[in-house]
Amino acid sequence: MIRFENVGLRYGTGPEILRDVTFHILPGSFHFLTGPSGAGKTSLLRLLFMSIRPSRGLIFVFGENLSELTQGGRAELRRRIGIVFQDFRLLDHLTTWENVALPLRVMGKRESDYRDDVTDLLNWVGLGDRMHAYPEILSGGEKQRAAIARAVIGRPELLLADEPTGNVDPVIANRLLRLFVELNRLGTSVIIATHDYALMDQLDTPRLVLLDGHLQIR
C-alpha cells in the first residue's frame, strides 16, 4: 500500500530531519508512529499525505511512484487517504455536517447521494445533535470527532491521524481509539502519530519509532 525506500527530508538548506527511512505499510494494518517531540512525526505524515516532497529516496503510494505523478494524479490519490490534523482544520463558516461532507463535495458527488451517509456517520461518532452547529461552538473533543468523521467519510483506504488525542481527556481519547480500531476492522489501514504511551499500550500493534531522523519498527 505504502512503501518508503531510503527517504530523506530536509527543509531548505537545514539539517536532514528524516534519514534513510524505509518501511512498508500493508493494507488493513494498524500502526502507531511515535518518537520524541521534534523527531519528525508530522513531517513523515506530510510525506505520506503528499503535501511535501522528499529530498531523496522513493515513495510509492497505492503502487504509484509519487515522483512521477502530476498534481491531478496526487489529488486523486489523496482522495483515497483520510487525514486528521492535530489542529482539526475545520472551516468555521461551514456547519459540522457541511465540514464532514466536504470530501464528498469536492469529489463532485450530489448532496442527495451522501446526505444520509454523513448524518449516519455523525450519529456514529456521537455528534448527531451537533451536526448543524458551527465549529467555533464545539468543544475540543467534538471538533476532534468532526475532524475524524471528515477524514473517514470518503471511506479512505488509509487513515492518518496526527496526535488525535492530544487535545482531549483520557475518556474521550479511549473513545477515539475505539473509533480508529473499528475503522481498521472495516478495512482501513490506520497510522496514528502520538507520543501518548498510555494510548499505545492499549493495543498490541507495530510501532514506527522515529529517533534522530531514523525509523525503527518495534
Binding site: 499525505f49 503535501s51 498534481q71 491531478g72 489529488a75 486523486e76 489523496r78 482522495r79 487525514i83 490534523f85 482544520r89 475545520l90 472551516l91 466536504l102 470530501p103 469536492v106 469529489m107 463532485g108 471528515r150 470518503g154
Partner: peptide
C-alpha cells in the same frame, strides 16, 4: 489560505 489548504487536503483538485 486556510480554506485552500483544507480543500487541498480533502482531495480537491486545483481546478475545483
Amino acid at each position: 489560505r486556510e480554506i485552500i489548504e483544507v480543500l487541498h487536503f480533502v482531495g480537491a483538485t486545483e481546478r475545483f
